[in-house]
C-alpha cells in the first residue's frame, strides 16, 4: 500500500526522475526540427487550395461560417476557436499567413532563430487550425500538442528542468494519442475480420496509390496486413517504454506509420507520428 502511494507521489512530484528525466539535447533538437518541418508541410499543403475555403467566395468564408453557426445555434460553442485570421477574410491574407508559417517553420528547423520562435510557430498552427475549424483533424491536434511541449522543452538557454519536463510531456502526450488511436482502431469490426487494410485503402479514388485492385485483392495479404497494422501500434508503444526494447519499439512505430501512409495516403499525419515516435530516444532512460 505504502509502495503504491510512493509510486503515485513519485509520478506527480516535480523533483523526481519522472518529470525530471535526463535528456539528450541533440536528439531533442532533431525532434524539434522534424516537427517544425511537418508544420512547414502543413502550411504548404494549405496553400494549394486556400482560395477554395477562405475569402468572400470561399466555402468557409467568415459570412458563410457565421450564417451556419447562427442557423445551427452554435455561436456559443464556436467562440473559443480563436484566431487572428478571423479579422482578415481574404484569400490573399490567408496565403500571406501560410507563407509566414512556412518561413517560421524553416527558421525553427535551421535553429538560427530565437527560442521564442517555437512558441510563435505553435500559435501559428493553432491559428490556422482554428480558422478552418471544420476541416481540422488529428494532424492539427498532433502538431499543436507536439509544438507546445517542444516549445517548453527548448524554452531555456541551457538544458534545465524545463527541458526534461517538456520532453517528458511530449512522450506522454504521444503515448496517450497512440493508445487512444490503437483502442479506437480495434473498436471496429474490420480490424478483427481481416478487412482493415481494405478499409484503410478505401476510398481508392482519393488515395495517392490504389491498392484495392492489386495487392489487396489477395485474401491472405489483407488478412496479414490488417493483423500487423492493428497490433503493431499497441505493441510498439509498450516496447518503446521499456529500456531494453526501446529501439525495437520505435522501429515498429515508424514502420507502422510508413505502412499506414502508403496504404491510406495519410502522409502528413504519419510523418508527424513517425517523428513523434523518435521522442523516446530523447530520454536517456524513458522509464
Amino acid at each position: 500500500m505504502n509502495d503504491n502511494h510512493a509510486g503515485i507521489r513519485s509520478t506527480i512530484s516535480s523533483d523526481t526522475g519522472f518529470w525530471n528525466p535526463q535528456v539528450n539535447p541533440q536528439r531533442l533538437i532533431w525532434l524539434r526540427g522534424t516537427m517544425a518541418l511537418s508544420a512547414g508541410f502543413y502550411f504548404l499543403s494549405a496553400l494549394t487550395d486556400a482560395a477554395l475555403w477562405v475569402g468572400h467566395e470561399g466555402l468557409l468564408s467568415r459570412q458563410s461560417i457565421g450564417d451556419f453557426l447562427s442557423a445551427a445555434d452554435l455561436q456559443s460553442e464556436a467562440r473559443y476557436y480563436l484566431s487572428p485570421l478571423w479579422w482578415f477574410d481574404s484569400a490573399a491574407a490567408y496565403r500571406v499567413f501560410l507563407i509566414a508559417g512556412i518561413t517560421l517553420s524553416l527558421g525553427v528547423v535551421s535553429g538560427r532563430v530565437p527560442r521564442l520562435t517555437t512558441w510563435v510557430l505553435w500559435f501559428w498552427i493553432v491559428a490556422a487550425a482554428n480558422r478552418l475549424m471544420m476541416l481540422a483533424g488529428m494532424t492539427e491536434t498532433l502538431l499543436s500538442l507536439a509544438m507546445f511541449s517542444l516549445a517548453i522543452a527548448t524554452s531555456t538557454k541551457r538544458v534545465s528542468w524545463w527541458t526534461g519536463f517538456g520532453t517528458r510531456l511530449f512522450v506522454c502526450q504521444f503515448t496517450i494519442v497512440a493508445a487512444v488511436f490503437a483502442a479506437g482502431t480495434l473498436n471496429g469490426d474490420v480490424w478483427w475480420n481481416g478487412l482493415g487494410a481494405v478499409a484503410l485503402a478505401e476510398p481508392a479514388g482519393l488515395k495517392s496509390i490504389d491498392w484495392t485492385e492489386g495487392l489487396l485483392t489477395t485474401t491472405w495479404v489483407h488478412d496479414v496486413l490488417t493483423f500487423l497494422i492493428a497490433f503493431s501500434l499497441p505493441a510498439g508503444i509498450l516496447a518503446a517504454w521499456h529500456n531494453a526494447t526501446r529501439k525495437a519499439g520505435v522501429a515498429v512505430l515508424i514502420a507502422w506509420s510508413f505502412a499506414v501512409a502508403l496504404l491510406g495516403s495519410q502522409w502528413l499525419e504519419c510523418l508527424i507520428f513517425a517523428g513523434s515516435a523518435t521522442s523516446f530516444f530523447c530520454l536517456r532512460k524513458p522509464v
Binding site: L82, V126, M133, S144, T185, G188, W191, L195, G196, A199
Partner: peptide, 16 residues
C-alpha cells in the same frame, strides 16, 4: 483555443 482536443473527430484508422 489551443487545438489540443480531438473536437469530436475520431482518433482511429478507418472502420470501413
Amino acid at each position: 483555443a489551443t487545438r489540443f482536443g480531438a473536437d469530436g473527430k475520431p482518433a482511429r484508422l478507418p472502420h470501413g
